[in-house]
């Protein structure tokens, strides 16, 4: 992968090789981030495709100021999701679409894994919006704290504080979810 500055130049020049490289690197990450937010496979695919097309449309306004391409792409993805919820009739915090999860050869372990994933998705869905933004960008998008800060327009310190409080809330919800399961 080229360094960030030459990647930015390649993107601006609409160099197909750079775009293909960026696509391969970020498509799965952008998809995961969107899929967690919309919980619907088809919508997640459409929106991820749109993110890259929108990025292409707006690449002339993308200036290299030390901001990596990842932060720029995820800001577009973040705005796409916000627009989606603003215009969509679907309810926020939908249960996880099980087909989002990759197939497992063993149906028992696949079922167990789906339960775990559903619990995590549910717990993340109960966080405050600001905490949820940080957790999804950080763990589904795979961004660093600095990149998350750029996407959300917050300081790194603020992102770290949100990350900490989000993990405390997640831990509490996940452990209470497990207790409920054990009682059943």
């Amino acid at each position: 992968m080229q360094d960030e500055e030459s990647t930015a130049r390649g993107l601006q020049n609409r160099d197909p090789e750079t775009w293909a490289e960026v696509y391969e690197k970020y498509f799965p990450r952008v998809y995961r981030y969107i899929a967690l937010r919309v919980s619907d496979k088809t919508e997640a695919e459409d929106l991820t495709g749109q993110v890259f097309l929108k990025a292409l449309e707006s690449v002339s306004s993308f200036k290299w100021r030390g901001v990596p391409a990842s932060a720029w792409l995820f800001r577009i993805a973040h705005n796409c999701v916000i627009d989606y919820w603003r215009t969509s009739k679907a309810k926020y915090n939908l249960p996880l679409d099980e087909s989002l999860v990759g197939n497992d050869a063993d149906p028992v372990s696949e079922a167990e894994r789906n339960v775990d994933i559903s619990q995590v998705v549910q717990a993340v869905g109960q966080l405050t919006q600001a905490q949820r933004d940080v957790i999804e960008l950080r763990f589904a998008g795979g961004l660093s704290t600095a990149e998350v800060a750029k996407v959300l327009g917050k300081s790194q310190g603020a992102v770290k504080v949100l990350q900490h409080s989000a993990l405390i809330a997640l831990r509490r919800r996940l452990s209470s979810g497990r207790k409920d399961e054990e009682e059943l």
Binding site: W19, A20, Y23, E24, F27, P28, Y31, R32, A35, L36, K41, A44, E45, T48, G49, F52, L53, L56, L100, V101, G102, R113, D116, I117, V120, V121, V124, I135, E136, F139, A140, L170
Partner: peptide, 22 residues
């Protein structure tokens, strides 16, 4: 959370199609 999100995978055929379109 990392494990749960990493098990969410795009369909390879859709990924290829979207790449071609781009």
């Amino acid at each position: 959370t990392v494990r749960a999100s990493s098990s969410i995978e795009p369909r390879p055929e859709f990924q290829r199609l979207a790449k071609h379109q781009l």
